[in-house]
Design a protein around this nucleic acid. Structure first.
Lengths: 144, 144
DNA sequence: GCAGTCGCAACGTTAATTGTTACGACCACC
DNA sequence: GGTGGTCGTAACAATTAACGTTGCGACTGC
């Protein structure tokens, strides 16, 4: 499906900020998070920018600038993150309009649309069951 | 997510073959299906080739060649089709290994792997609830 | 033998993601 | 009121996958 890592990196960043704050720090920099995720700070800033638009984090500029959580990890779910960083649907329709003269070509898109909607609703329900607090707990539970 | 249309096109092809056979024909050609789906016959042959490997369709060569169902539409689910045409996982991990010296970098992949496995299992369960017979029924139920 | 179709390789096009560089905007601190 | 560190964002390259297209050999009913 050409899956991407946006949800994974976003969860990584949130868990990192959350843990950092619990250790007494005010803000985390994109540089620090990028080092942990082994990527470029701009990639982190782009993702965190989307999370900021969704109200999950805040950013401060100037000296001592950086990122902090806008809400508790307990109140954020993977669905919040998913909706912030993944705009499109899970399955795509035909890239060109199927033959409307054909019975199947005419009915296939409404049919699949209905089916896909139900499936995506279930997916969203599953994502909503996992909080970022759950994620951080699982992260810290990893052996050694 | 850069969703693709492989599942949609594969379902389209199966519904088309199924309906065509119910109307008394033996085999359907990739040319006919491609016309209905408004794409190239090679694209259809590639997808149907994967469905053949999964035991969902059969192909005949030579004169009067084409494609036919290997099983009844009632016995095929979207999960069968999905597994035949979508090899990879839904969500990707980091493209490079995160910093193993960092607590979060070390624990994030096992944590997300476990979470993603549960979610994908639910997705598979949902896909398995829809048969291709359901799809064809919905296709024929589309207004006018 | 011939015609029609599959099987498959090869290549081009398009689009999304990710990585990178660059630079202006901002602001706590001195 | 400078200064240094960080964000915000644009721009571009690199990589990858999906999709479309052409070409041609293989197969087989007639």
């Amino acid at each position: 499906m050409s899956a991407n890592s946006r949800l994974t990196i976003a969860a990584h960043a949130l868990a990192w900020i959350g843990l950092y704050q619990r250790r007494g720090h005010e803000v985390a920099t994109s540089e620090q998070i990028a080092t942990s995720a082994n990527t470029n700070p701009v990639v982190i800033r782009r993702l965190l920018g989307e999370l900021r638009r969704a109200g999950l984090v805040k950013s401060r500029r100037g000296v001592g600038a950086g990122w902090s959580l806008a809400r508790e990890l307990e109140s954020m779910t993977l669905l919040d993150v998913y909706e912030a960083v993944e705009p499109g649907p899970l399955f795509a329709m035909h890239r060109t309009t199927p033959d409307q003269e054909c019975v199947v070509g005419h009915g296939i898109q409404p049919a699949m649309r209905g089916i896909y909607e139900g499936i995506e609703e279930t997916l969203r329900h599953e994502l909503a069951r996992v909080t970022l607090e759950n994620v951080l707990r699982d992260v810290l539970a990893a052996p050694r």
